[in-house]
Simulated scan of single mutants.
Amino acid sequence: MGTLKSPAEAKNWLRANGISISDFARQHDLDPATTYQVLSGVKKGYRGKAHKAAVALGIKADPICTQ
């Protein structure tokens, strides 16, 4: 498992790789609005769509891989 990112680091990674937040969300079957909210810190990714977005962005560890 790689190191986890902060929301700011995840946003910088997207920017450095030329990936828009909307494109990332579509590629990972995520809700774009929720993805924006996770990256801005409005949603912490505790459950549901926000959790899925946080795992895809590398902000939270994938619970399946940590078991």
Rank of each mutant, 00 (worst) to 15 (best):
K43W: 03
D29Y: 05
D29V: 10
K11Y: 02
A33Y: 03
H51Y: 13
M1H: 12
R47Y: 05
T34V: 15
K52G: 06
Y36I: 04
I59S: 06
L39Y: 05
T3Q: 09
Q37I: 01
G48Q: 12
G48V: 10
N12R: 12
G58L: 11
G45P: 07
D31S: 11
V55A: 12
K43F: 06
G2N: 14
W13S: 10
P63S: 09
P32L: 07
Q37T: 02
P7G: 03
D23V: 10
R26N: 07
T66D: 12
Q67N: 12
A16M: 05
A8T: 14
R26T: 07
V55T: 07
K52P: 06
S22Q: 08
P63R: 14
G58N: 11
Q27A: 15
A56V: 05
S20F: 08
I21T: 14
E9R: 00
G18N: 15
Q37H: 11
G2S: 13
D62F: 05
Q27P: 02
H51P: 03
P63C: 05
L4E: 07
L30N: 01
D62Y: 04
R26V: 06
G45D: 08
A54N: 07
K49Y: 02
K52R: 15
A56E: 10
K11T: 01
I21S: 04
I59T: 08
T35S: 11
Q67M: 11
Y36G: 01
E9T: 00
D23Y: 13
E9M: 00
D31W: 01
Q37L: 10
D23F: 12
N17H: 15
I19S: 05
P32W: 13
G2P: 13
D31Y: 00
G48H: 12
N17S: 07
G2T: 13
I21Q: 14
K49E: 11
D62G: 00
N12K: 14
R47I: 00
L4N: 11
T3I: 08
K49R: 15
N17P: 03
A54L: 09
S20Y: 09
K49D: 10
G2M: 13
I64K: 14
M1G: 13
M1R: 07
A8Q: 15
Q27L: 11
T35C: 13
Y36L: 01
A61T: 03
